[in-house]
Simulated scan of single mutants.
Amino acid sequence: METNKNNKGGRKPKLNPSKNRYVFRLTDEENIHFLKLFDASGMANKAKFITTILFQKELKIIKVDVSTMDYHTQLTKLFYQFQSIGNNYNQIVKILYRNFTDKKASLYLFKLENHTKELALICKQIIELTKEFELKHIQKNTDK
C-alpha cells in the first residue's frame, strides 16, 4: 500500500486567511451601544459585524414586532373564513332554489340577506380597526 506523504490530515487551508489582527477598547457606554447594534444586526460573529461596518457593506437590521405579526396572522385567518362564508353562501342559494319553491326560497334568502348585512358591518369595523392599528403601531415603528 502506498500512502501519500504530502497529506498531513486536518483541515484544508483557507484560500485567503485573515492573519491581521487589530485591538481596540471601548468605554462601558460605547460597549453597551456596540452590543445593542450587534444584537440588532442578527449576525452571529462580532468580527464579521465589525468588518461589515468598517467597509460600509450593506447591513440590514430587521426588527420583528411580534404583536404586529400576530395581528396579521389573525387577520389572514379571518380573511380565509370570509372566503369560506362566501363559498357557503353560493352553495346555500343554489340549494334553496333547487329544493324549495320560489316563495319559500325567497323567505330564507331574506333571512340570509339580513345576516349578510350584519357581517358587512362587522367587516367595516374590522377595516376601521386595521387602519387605526396601522396608524398607531405600524407607522410609529417605521419612523424610529
Rank of each mutant, 00 (worst) to 15 (best):
M1N: 10
N4C: 06
N4R: 05
N7W: 01
K8Y: 01
R11S: 03
R11I: 00
K14S: 08
L15A: 15
K19H: 05
K19W: 02
R25P: 00
D28V: 09
E29V: 14
E29C: 05
N31F: 06
H33V: 09
L35K: 07
D39Y: 10
A40M: 14
M43H: 03
A44N: 11
N45H: 12
A47Q: 05
F49W: 04
F49M: 06
F49L: 06
T51F: 04
T52R: 02
I53Q: 06
I53K: 08
K63A: 07
D65E: 14
S67N: 14
T68W: 06
H72M: 11
T73H: 14
T73Q: 10
T76C: 10
K77Q: 15
K77E: 11
G86A: 08
N88R: 02
I92K: 07
V93E: 00
K94C: 00
I95F: 06
Y97N: 07
D102V: 13
K104H: 02
L107R: 04
Y108H: 06
L109M: 11
F110P: 00
E113P: 00
N114M: 11
K117S: 05
A120D: 15
I122N: 13
K124Q: 14
K124T: 08
I127V: 15
E128A: 15
K136N: 14
I138C: 04
